[in-house]
């Protein structure tokens, strides 16, 4: 296996410090488990697809897919739900990388909603996500007739995800019912679904954010440059830094653009994804920063804070 020892010095810490566990053995175990999950899906479903969000988790998923089906090609297409509010660097990265590894990409946009002027600062984040992400995703899955969709979600991301299954069952309208989920024992995944139902598959269920970065480092996996710190033009809004690289962020009264050295911890739509002040411009520095930092990555996503338990509501409706 190509998981090499890390090049950066291991953190000098006692047993009480959170961090990557000594050595990288556990990454091999996580990788093998993810490969197993992907192969089961390809063996037992008719039309799988991979939801490709361009973020770090998607980058890891793609590498795992390359490994799972080697020496063959990735046997399913990638689906990117493009809200048109993504960062320019994300789209560039997507197009180059997908071409480089020879994957098939489907891009889907809810053009009707865009034409109607849907954007977060006009209709609010909830309605915007509903139209451009959730509805768009469900439409694209239906149009493609996909019965299994891989996603990069992890159980450590958010409290409501801790109970998510590896195979998450969705009814005919793409919705998730917490009461209708099946127990998962051993490595035995139940692939039986009724006509019209589908599953979301989460091969990274047992990975944490630090595992993802450690794997990206160990495997030299390319990621979007937005993750790395550099000076960017932003506006400080509450606790987040909102990038002004794109024209759709209106300034509020009293706000003024500033140049701040920062990076993105998770990538979403540019108006709704805050950056963090950071000097971490390499993967090892990002890992060190994560060990030292105390905030979860979703804190900076405006959308998760609409409402208590808001991720869970979105999930029920079909977003992830």
């Amino acid at each position: 296996m190509a998981i090499a020892a890390p090049h950066h010095p291991a953190p000098q810490s006692g047993p009480r410090t959170a961090g990557p566990s000594a050595g990288y053995d556990h990454l091999r175990a996580l990788e093998a488990e993810s490969l197993h999950i992907m192969r089961e899906v390809v063996a037992e479903f008719e039309r799988p697809v991979m939801l490709y969000s361009i973020g770090k988790d998607s980058s890891v998923l793609l590498r795992l897919a390359q490994k799972a089906f080697y020496p063959g090609p990735i046997p399913f297409p990638l689906l990117h739900v493009d809200t048109t509010y993504k960062f320019r660097e994300m789209i560039e990265f997507r197009d180059n990388y997908v071409k480089e590894i020879g994957a098939r990409l489907i891009v889907h946009t809810n053009t009707e909603a865009i034409a109607d002027g849907t954007q977060p600062f006009l209709v609010g984040t909830q309605r915007c996500c509903g139209a451009l992400k959730t509805k768009s995703l469900l439409d694209a899955l239906e149009a493609g007739g996909f019965d299994a969709a891989f996603g990069g979600a992890r159980r450590d991301e958010e409290r409501s995800r801790a109970k998510e299954r590896i195979f998450s069952l969705r009814d005919a309208s793409g919705q998730w019912d917490p009461k209708n989920q099946r127990p998962e024992l051993w490595q035995l995944l139940n692939s039986r679904i009724h006509h019209g139902e589908s599953i979301r598959v989460f091969p990274l269920s047992n990975w944490t954010e630090i595992d993802v970065w450690s794997y990206i480092h160990a495997e030299s996996i390319p990621v979007v440059p937005l993750y790395f710190a550099r000076e960017r033009e932003v506006v400080v809004r509450g606790e987040s830094l909102i990038s002004l690289e794109q024209p759709f962020v209106p300034l509020l009264p009293g706000e003024r653009p500033q140049r701040i050295t920062c990076r993105m911890r998770s990538l979403g739509c540019s108006p709704c994804t805050g950056a963090v002040r950071s000097e971490a411009d390499t993967v090892p520095k990002i890992i060190e920063e994560l060990i030292a930092t105390k905030n979860s990555e979703r804190q900076l996503r405006v959308i998760d804070h609409d409402q208590d338990g808001s991720m869970e509501l979105k999930k029920r409706e079909g977003y992830f």
Binding site: P15, R16, A18, A22, R155, K163, N206
Partner: peptide, 8 residues
């Protein structure tokens, strides 16, 4: 499922 890690 919960995840935690120590240096070990």
């Amino acid at each position: 499922y919960r995840y935690f890690a120590t240096a070990r």
